[in-house]
Amino acid sequence: MRPRIGERLWAWAVWTLVGFFVLNLLAMIGSVVVNSFGTRWFNTWLPAGYTSQWYTLAWNEFQLPDILLVTAEVVGAVVLISGAIGVPAAYAMARRNFPGKQAVMFLFLLPLLVPPITYGIPMATVLYQAHLAGTIWGVILANLVPTVPFVILIMIPFVEQIDPRVEAAARVFGAGLARLFLQVLVPLLTPGILAALLLVLVRTIAMFELTFLTSGPTSQTLVVALYYAVFAAGVRPGQSIDAMAVVYMITTLVWLLIALRFVNPTQIVTRAKRQ
């Protein structure tokens, strides 16, 4: 079938739209990167010269080493805890039918459907009263709210695709629950766990709202520090803010690239499909 002219025009229009979007997106990222290396950039396509001084400045001025350490601690703790809580729960959700399962499922869906700023404000209030907000543990707890359900929803299909007879066989040969989990299920679920935890990692690095609402001066992650830097723009040279933005972008995108080896990009917005 030869496509008709109207159809071809339509296809052309759609691709132009996609191209325009991608072009602007790349230009946006590109201008941040170029600016962060530029000496003076005024009324020209490209800066007058290039330097790495803004990175040194940002490194010292924004206390990047401290912030990166806090970020790593928060992200590490969130990844480990949400895995430890979420994976067993996903296993139980996938394997057992019990009264009220629908309600529990709904309970796990809610924190993913309600946007963080909506529940973040009352949650931050509670955390402040518990004297947890402002500390690193407050930030970790807040970030776990969406990530634990996220791990569960990603892992359920992974568990479902494992033949229950494999577990039955392990039980017949005398494996207890702990042994079953560690020696049979975890190895079989490794790709799924890796995918889920990498996605949690990427999401936690980029999670602004919850961290912003619960962090104090010593518990800021990179994205919150970047917000404050942009918010107070004018105090420091714009190039050093962009240098910090580049550091942030590298931190996120490296992990994104690693994550994409294990998951399909569409899985970042939707739950995993059964393979």
Partner: peptide
């Protein structure tokens, strides 16, 4: 998937420059 991953703060800073 990049802009989703970067998040709103980063996109805001990028757009301010761009």
């Amino acid at each position: 998937v990049i802009p989703i991953t970067l998040g709103t703060v980063m996109v805001a800073e990028g757009l301010l420059t761009y």
